[in-house]
Design a protein around this nucleic acid. Structure first.
Lengths: 111, 111
DNA sequence: AAATATACACAAGAATCTTATATATAATCA
DNA sequence: TGATTATATATAAGATTCTTGTGTATATTT
């Protein structure tokens, strides 16, 4: 993507779903994973991702642990108990939205 | 919808597609049509719709004509020639986005 | 040695929507 | 008949979410 706005609001459910599936991930890894899953279509920018990660950590949805990789510090994020609940809610909303989009793009013929 | 943000950015392609299919429509009609097509899921608010209509008219994507219905004035919008081009572009971006969403929601198993 | 990949982070600004409000007519309901 | 709901357009203030640009630093590839 990266074209216009479009996927605004979808980042959070996408993130929570990824963390649920992968257990724990760090920021850079998340951007790579999303790019890979979407065949290069969706590039999450750092300016969007890191503020979101910080907000979700502050809200108790995510928890973070630092890890030393060589000389570097890597910050792993994972869902809290509350985060797992949030994930269910957010993803079901996104699925619902995806279906709604389909209704608009391919309306059922009414005859 | 109306729940969170989510469909941000999708309004313009949806609108252009509707106008393409229906020839001409007025604001209130558009809000009803979207609600109908999405089984009540997506409610376009006036605060989102009217500014968008005005912007697209100013940009030469839409043209408007007033019509008197009883004592009331109704404003019909339709696509300009340029608008029809814009419609193709915007809708194909939205379709692409919908597919990208599917990739994230139902990733292809990699084995 | 330079460029690219890895890794995190923030600030300013743009874009898009929500909520609230305003106006006015027409139809329905109690 | 008075109140509510539906029809119809419109604007303003504010919230949210993202993009773009910038900064720092290490590791790897060319």
């Amino acid at each position: 993507m990266n074209k216009k706005v479009l996927y605004k609001g979808c980042l959070e459910p996408i993130l929570l779903k990824l963390l649920h599936e992968n257990g724990r991930m760090y920021g850079y890894e998340i951007t790579r994973k999303v790019k890979e899953l979407t065949a290069g279509e969706l590039n999450i920018t750092e300016g969007a991702l890191y503020p979101l990660l910080h907000r979700l950590e502050a809200d108790g949805v995510l928890e973070a642990e630092m890890e030393n990789i060589g000389n570097r510090v890597r910050k792993y994020y994972s869902l809290t108990q509350n985060g797992r609940k949030e994930k269910v809610k957010a993803v079901s909303e996104l699925e619902n939205f995806a279906q709604t989009l389909q209704l608009l793009l391919n309306p059922k013929p009414s005859f």
